[in-house]
Design a protein around this nucleic acid. Structure first.
Lengths: 340, 340
DNA sequence: CTGAAAGCGCTTACAG
DNA sequence: CTGAAAGCGCTTACAG
């Protein structure tokens, strides 16, 4: 037990390096490096001396140097549109936690809906020589080109594009839309109102919904659109639109649980009962879906699974193993609760 | 105008380096480096040739190497407890956006409430030789020690501790608590119910509230406590507690707008009117505060200002300028809306 | 299991 | 305004 870690000042003014540790432990820097990265390959006696030296010097490896030398940065970029109210938040929470637990540094980029910002962030990620880029945004030719010539693994999550550059971990938004329509039909709703955000994924869900509704539904479909992301605050305007309709819809299909929550608040405030007078369906199964009153019928996406699959793929890619699949379909499932 | 950027393959299989650019432009690597980091110091003719070479080779600087050589990583760590429902989200959104816009890479760490995880993340940040660490968690001796011997600027945000290690950008939670009590008194409420989360900052607000209430309030104060973070989902239990009380409180003071939102939903669902039967106050002035029905009386914290001050401090620190203040008080202000 | 040494791709005094 | 060269702190074949 050596307690000098807290008392020994660094040898000089600056941070301890591998050299300092090696000198103190009486071994070469190569051996210290091996110990730090893969302790099992050094003899136990040597390891003990190195451990002591690391503690005594307060050595913290310089991953800038390490990454440069090994050309493996152990860093992954995570690019999402917003931090606030994003439908990806649960997935990203799991993603960031698991990456950190695996010793990977997470670079966060907020793309908003700006293509130029997205490109800047991709460029920044490539500048850091990230091992992978986890991406939720829409592809542009610029992004595609930058990413293609880089060795970083490009992972599109929350969707399954036809031709992913790297790999995709997600689900079919078209199928999700169909599932919702099917559910609505099975419950006997006849006047659905569909609220769709402008993004590509939301449009895919809309397409699936409309397709299925036209095939099996009975009654008229009305629609509204909102900016991305589908937020709580959009509900006020949408609800006003609905109230102006000659006949009230019997179910409102929302692009997020936050928007669904807003619709419920608007409905209740104006004296309607949910789901009796008007039913509401959300999307994403965020935590509040199960906590709202009434609880919100929503579509669950297994964010942890997406995170795990993405991380497994990164691990394989880093180990030079071939990627097994270009598409990893994690599916999604509708959870019927009180609101519809 | 040179369009070869999109057509020229990289010279060999790997990414272009400064050497490639320098060779193509017929200058030294030093000059290219200067051009990349400070274009104005190179002659215009030279600059033009370098620009062409960069475009042609698709050169993307390696910031691992750059950071190692300059010992300025242009990276900042942002450590927050959660991505979901966090009261910091608006501040952090602004922070990340402004950092990115300034060309700084953001390393994101999710500390949860775990001290060991916090320490791992601090260590990871120091391993990357970040220029600064933006921190919202509680200090531990371990964290303090690691951070103290590092050249990174340590910035505690959303609070003003007595003795910050680096600097603090925040506000007095005690004063915030006092302000809320004062508001309540001024509105004539007499039976406040205070819901406090376990975290240190929430406890400070509680202390300020209780102090002020005892000095100027009239009537009995009741209390509940919740886990951090103060979430929407906590409302159900708290409301049940309140209903069991012999006399209903006339105002519920919540630790976040999300919790306040939950309280409103619970109240309305059980047939109470807000604020007539029971008033509700939030904290943080998140976007939903102004969007909820009724809109939520809350305490505004200027997240953008916190972000800007933090970034200005980082800039000064990186430029070796002396820090001006150890505490930057951005204050906070109560915004009266419909809910109380 | 361990060491000597080259090399990763930049930056930056220093000199001109 | 520009170049030659040392150095940042690691990793990793290669050899033993």
């Amino acid at each position: 037990m050596n307690t000098s870690a807290t008392t020994d000042p660094p040898p000089n003014g600056k941070a301890a390096t591998l050299d300092d540790v090696a000198a103190r432990a009486g071994v070469s820097t190569a051996t210290v490096s091996r110990f730090v990265n893969n302790p099992s390959v050094v003899a136990e006696g040597t390891a003990a001396r190195i451990r002591e030296a690391i503690a005594a010097t307060g050595y913290i490896p310089n991953l800038l140097a390490g990454g440069l030398a090994s050309s493996r940065s152990k860093m992954v970029a995570v690019l999402i549109p917003y931090l606030i109210d994003s439908i990806f938040n649960d997935t990203m929470q799991a993603m960031v936690e698991e990456l950190s637990a695996a010793g990977t540094t997470v670079m966060l980029g907020l793309t908003g809906v700006s293509e130029s910002r997205t490109e800047d962030l991709i460029r920044a990620a490539l500048s850091r020589r990230v091992d992978a880029i986890i991406f939720t945004g829409p592809m542009t030719p610029q992004v595609e080109q930058m990413v293609q010539r880089s060795p970083a693994l490009f992972i599109q999550v929350w969707e399954l594009p036809d031709n992913p550059i790297g790999i995709a971990v997600g689900f079919s938004h078209r199928d999700a839309g169909r599932d919702i329509a099917q559910f609505i039909v099975s419950r006997g709703y006849r006047r659905p109102h569909l609220v769709t955000a402008e993004g590509a994924r939301a449009q895919m869900r809309r397409a699936g919904f409309v397709e299925q509704w036209q095939a099996t539904g009975k009654g008229a479909l009305s629609e509204s659109s909102v900016e991305v992301p589908s937020r709580f605050g959009h509900a006020r305007r949408i609800f006003a639109e609905i109230r102006r309709m000659p006949e009230l819809p019997d179910v409102v299909v929302c692009g997020s649980d936050q928007l669904a929550q807003g619709m419920i608040v608007e409905a209740i405030t104006s004296g309607l009962r949910v789901p009796d007078d008007i039913a509401v369906i959300g999307f994403g199964n965020s935590t509040i879906a199960g906590e709202m009153r009434p609880t919100i019928t929503s579509v669950e996406v297994d964010g942890s699974r997406i995170a795990r699959e993405a991380i497994a793929a990164i691990r394989r890619h880093s180990a030079q193993e071939p990627l097994r699949d270009r598409w990893i379909d994690v599916g999604c499932r509708l959870i019927a609760r009180e609101s519809a």
